[in-house]
Amino acid sequence: MSDSTMAALHDELAGTYDENTFHATVADAVVDGLAAEPAPGLLLDVATGTGHAAFAALRLAPAAVLAVDISPGMLARAEAKAATLDPAGRITWRVGPAVPMPAEDGSADGVLCASSLHFLGAAALRDWLRVLRPGGVAGFSLPVASRFSPSRTFTMHVPADLTLPDSAEEAVAVATGAGFTDVVARRLDTDDDRPRSAFVVHARAPR
């Protein structure tokens, strides 16, 4: 799928994206797993969407957050919320591909990616190792394979180089196989009228 096609598809979703509260739940879980870390310098939010993980990351008191998404419509929604949720302007919003991230090698203390890696593929994991400092942390989510049912339009374009997990052990293997260390994963489920599931993974770049 071309960048312009992917951007257009997500632009169409932007107006109702926040109605799916599971996105915010996943973003909170991705960020909360990094809460024990010291206050970071630069955090990168990969494929930020409407900014759930970027806003949640402000709880970690970072010096700066760079949030990137290919969809102008998604970022417009994020920036509209920023006046209230980020009055100090610590988040920089940038339209563009999330792989590669527009960051220097070894410049980031942390990388966040909520509800998006399955559309980016294994190349994203390799890029995170590039941008992270030695020992830097990554937090991301992956759908549970047996419960993943995207629309036909998206199914046709999900990258084939990333195997979705059905267990926490398989989710850990996604990160260790890419070269991360100290990997932990847990399953996150909701029990509302539309049950949803994801694995939340935290890992560290080699020191």
Score class of each variant (00 low, 15 high):
Pro102Trp: 01
Pro97Asn: 01
Asp182Gln: 10
His202Glu: 03
Ala36His: 13
Leu142Trp: 08
Leu117Asp: 05
Leu85Gly: 11
Val31Ser: 12
Thr84Val: 15
His157Gln: 08
Thr92Leu: 06
Ala7Thr: 11
Ala57Lys: 10
Leu162Tyr: 09
Arg94Gly: 02
Ala145Arg: 11
Phe199Arg: 05
Gly49Glu: 03
Ala27Ser: 11
Val46Asn: 06
Asp193Tyr: 07
Ile91Gly: 10
Ala14Tyr: 10
Ile91Pro: 04
Glu19His: 12
Ala168Thr: 13
His118Asp: 01
Ser149Lys: 15
Gly89Ala: 10
Val68Met: 00
Gly41Phe: 07
Asp192Asn: 10
Ala76Gln: 15
Ala122Trp: 03
Ser4Arg: 14
Arg59His: 14
Arg130His: 11
Leu85Arg: 14
Pro97Val: 00
Pro62Thr: 04
Phe119Val: 00
Ala82Met: 09
Ala205Gly: 11
Pro150Arg: 08
Trp128Phe: 08
Ala160Gly: 15
Asp18Thr: 02
Ser71Trp: 09
Ala124Asp: 07
Ser146Ala: 15
Arg147Leu: 15
Arg207Ile: 13
Val30Trp: 14
Ala185Phe: 02
Ala82Tyr: 09
Ala67Met: 00
Val95Cys: 15
Thr25Tyr: 03
Pro40Phe: 06
Ala88Met: 09
Pro72Ile: 07
Pro87Phe: 12
Cys113Leu: 09
His52Phe: 10
Pro62Ile: 02
Gly106Ile: 04
Tyr17Lys: 11
Ala64Pro: 06
Pro72Leu: 08
Pro165Glu: 06
Leu164Gly: 13
Leu42Val: 06
Ala63Thr: 14
Asp69Pro: 01
Ala175Gln: 10
Asp191Arg: 01
Ser167Glu: 13
Arg77Lys: 15
